[in-house]
């Protein structure tokens, strides 16, 4: 296992280099050099921030030197200081990370708890009314733009029914509340963002679960389990589900970038103070170092997520040889 993990780690090194090259290239699309035209067209790019960018990214040095400097900064996770408040970018990201992780881990958990039974049930009852209904509803769920769903929910529950707060992580006066109410307040603020985040992925995830189950159910060992007289429930839950769950590990790994960056739209809508919201704020104020930092942090989280998923897979499936 240690060898497998090491090998897997070594494999992500070229990808890390690739990410550094791509981000480096993006910096050179705009400021200075042959592409000055672009920055002039970009009216919000002030001469002041161009000057700051030049010093930050050493744009006056030869290209290879610039790249080496960029690389060494990345290795130290040093993305410079924010143009807006001069605080280190790393600090700003770390401060937002918990809110994003909280939302994403909770939504992954919920996703799992809802999508797995849904997929299993509809596979077990293939072509039943439930299965058809499920397939059509998940198709619709799949096509609803998440930001529109977020707005509709705000409209219904926040504005018309006034049941739930429509933005932020806690009420303004939450610090003066007793602890129980504080938790209640926090949960109230979580409901809508969590719903939107889970809803978007549930359709795809449970469909995947369904087709995985359908595939497993046709295997010989399932027929054997049935032939020896096991109750259907046991066949499905003990023999089939375990195997159908394996690919789900990979899907969870693959969905990490989507969860992290997808948050950028609804974190913004609900004013949820996570990384996505930070990305949006820095985009609106053309705070380049912060944007670069968020992009790279997102990429690192994705690589880490995929790595963990691969390792978990190797643990879960003894057939994997390494």
């Amino acid at each position: 296992m240690a060898r497998y993990i090491l090998k897997r780690l070594l494999l992500s090194i070229p990808i890390l280099f690739g990410i550094s090259l791509i981000t480096f290239a993006v910096i050179h699309i705009t400021p200075g050099g042959p592409t000055v035209l672009q920055s002039q067209m970009n009216a919000k790019m002030s001469p002041d921030s161009i000057a700051k960018l030049k010093t930050l990214y050493d744009l006056d040095k030869p290209l290879p030197v610039q790249y080496l400097k960029w690389l060494s900064r990345l290795a130290r996770l040093d993305f410079g200081d924010s143009f807006n408040d001069n605080r280190p970018v790393t600090e700003k990201i770390l401060e937002r990370l918990p809110a994003t992780l909280q939302l994403n881990l909770l939504s992954l958990l919920l996703l799992f708890l809802i999508a797995v039974p849904l997929g299993v049930y509809s596979a077990a009852k293939q072509n039943s009314v439930f299965d058809r209904l499920f397939t059509s509803i998940s198709f619709i769920g799949f096509s609803v733009p998440s930001f529109w769903l977020a707005l509709l929910l705000m409209l219904f529950f926040g504005v018309w029914l006034q049941w739930l707060p429509i933005s932020g992580m806690a009420s303004v006066n939450s610090s003066s509340m007793p602890p129980v109410l504080q938790v209640y307040d926090r949960i109230q603020h979580l409901i809508l963002p969590l719903f939107v985040s889970v809803f978007g992925s549930i359709a795809g995830f449970s469909r995947y679960m369904r087709s995985g189950m359908l595939e497993v159910i046709r295997q010989d060992y399932i027929r054997t389990a049935r032939a020896k007289g096991l109750p259907e429930r046991e066949v499905l839950l003990n023999h089939a589900l375990r195997n159908a769950l394996l690919p789900v590990i990979t899907i969870v790994g693959l969905s990490i970038p989507g969860l992290i960056s997808g948050g950028f739209i609804f974190e913004t809508i609900f004013a949820w103070p996570g990384m996505g919201r930070l990305a949006y704020e820095s985009a609106m104020s053309f705070d380049y170092p912060v944007i670069m930092g968020v992009v790279i942090a997102g990429a690192l989280l994705t690589l880490l997520g995929n790595l963990l998923a691969d390792i978990a897979y190797a643990f879960a499936d003894p057939r994997i040889r390494y």
Binding site: A43, S261, Y280, V295, T302
Partner: peptide, 24 residues
């Protein structure tokens, strides 16, 4: 294929956001 891996490892919407900000 390594290029594909690299592009996939940057969360797509962040990537798009970054390019929009740099290009306008």
């Amino acid at each position: 294929m390594r290029l594909v891996d690299i592009v996939l490892s940057v969360p797509a919407l962040f990537f798009i956001l970054m390019l929009v900000v740099f290009l306008g």
